[in-house]
Amino acid sequence: MANSFMSQWVYTDTVKEHFMNPRNLWQDGEDFEADGIGEVGSLACGDQMRVGIKVVDGKIQDLRWLTYGCASAIASTSMMSEMAIGMTLEEAYHLTPTMIMDELGGLPEHKFHCSVLGDKALRAAIDDYLEKQGMPNPYKNKVAKVMCECKNVTDVQIEELVKAGKVHSFEELQELTGVSTVCGKCKNKIKEELEELLHIYSK
C-alpha cells in the first residue's frame, strides 16, 4: 500500500520498551516473599496496581508488581520498579508520578493522572511494611501537603478518608473536615484532587 505518512507509536520508545519487556514483574508461582504489599487503583478507570517490596537495612532490596491496565500503566509501573529498587524507604516514599513520567520520556496528558499509580502503590507497600514491623511511619505526614490552610487539612488526610470509604463527595468531605468553609480559595483545587482520589479508590 502506498503511504507517504508514517506514524509514530502511541507512546515514547522508552514506554514501548517497558511495555514489551516489563521489568520485575511478579511471575505466577514465583517465590517472592514480600515484606510489604500495597495496592491502589480501581476498575472504574481501568487501572489497578499491586506492589510487593523486600526491605533490607531500610532499603528496598527487591520489588515485584502486577498491573491491570493500559500500556502506560504497565510501562510506568515497570519504570517505577527500576527506580525504586536500591532506594531507601524515605527516597522511595518521595517518588512522584512526574519523576516516573520524566524517565519514560513523557506521557499523553490524559494518561498521566489515571495510569501513573505506581508511586502510590509503592507508598502503600511501605506503609504496610512499617505497620507489619510495628514501626512508626515517619514519612506519611512529611510528604503531606496542606490543601486547605484555614482548616489545616492535608492531601494525605483526604486520601485516607477516601480510602476508608468515609468520603464520597465534596460535601461529605466538607462535613468531616470543614475544607473550603472559611476563605474558600482552595475549593477548586480540592475538588479536583478529590475527584481524582475518588476515581482511583472507588470500588
Partner: peptide, 24 residues
C-alpha cells in the same frame, strides 16, 4: 482480567488492528 488497550497494542505489534471498549 485483561485490559483492552494493552491487548490492542500487543496485537498491533503483531500487525493485527482492532479496537477496544476500554476507557484508555
Amino acid at each position: 482480567c485483561a485490559e483492552g488497550e494493552s491487548i490492542l497494542l500487543y496485537l498491533d505489534m503483531e500487525g493485527i488492528q482492532v479496537s477496544t471498549g476500554s476507557a484508555c
